[in-house]
Write a protein that binds this DNA or RNA. Structure first.
Lengths: 117, 117
DNA sequence: CTGCTGATTCGACAGTTGTCGATGTGGTGG
DNA sequence: CCACCACATCGACAACTGTCGAATCAGCAG
């Protein structure tokens, strides 16, 4: 599975969803989007996400961000959740694994919550 | 408690947080914001939220939105969660209870995820 | 007061989640 | 080849969550 790369979750610009004010979410869309919000619904995960997003160069290796008050396996677990939700992508380079934000996915979440449109 | 109105969770415009790209979230902010994202991290809740947000007039009574595939007590439970997270406010008018979105809070979440700023 | 309808609260329970220490894996360098 | 480092996976377990039916509360109409 892992040798197929991450093409499945790849951008495609994630058209998802008109802003919430304009129309009610379909069942499928609510399942998809809820999974993303859920991924940010843990303080440790949100902090990890924040550390990646704010890191110079837009990416960070695990060693750069793992100081969040939980054990290393737990950090790895949370990063996996963020990856599975499509919010982060990861890439191994030598000894280190680098994580970066998936901008279009996050933009979709932000747009959904933009009630002014 | 309910006769104190909802002043505690009232707007104050929720200044929270520079966009994620600009600085890493503090521990306290990550706890606060994660609670909000968590509230939207369930498909049923996200759908309820979407129904309120898209309802004509910007508010809806429970009877207008309770058709989401779960029992009525469960709907009430989820609405309570959304209220506690500060995303919705509620008001009783006669027989019915009306829910509406807390715009500034939602705007804060959207701004946090706006990576273009 | 009595009954009715809309909505919340209660109690119970199965399923999920966050956490850890131990173990495994992949890569680097002696 | 072996030791070491960065990171991921495994197995276990307490805590939390979503769900329901039953009971309760709040208004309204006889």
């Amino acid at each position: 599975m892992s040798n197929l790369e991450l093409t499945v979750l790849e951008p495609e610009t994630v058209p998802c969803c008109a802003p919430l004010t304009s129309a009610e979410l379909s069942v499928e869309d609510s399942v998809r989007m809820a999974a993303m919000f859920k991924a940010l619904g843990d303080p440790v995960r949100l902090r990890l996400f924040s550390k990646v997003a704010s890191h110079p160069g837009g990416e960070a290796c695990v060693c750069d961000i793992q100081d969040v008050g939980v054990s290393q396996p737990t950090v790895s677990h949370h990063l996996k959740k963020l990856r599975e939700a499509g919010l982060l992508t990861s890439e191994r380079r030598g000894t280190w694994v680098y994580y970066k934000v998936a901008p279009s996915v996050v933009a979709g979440m932000s747009a959904l919550l933009d009630l002014t449109r």
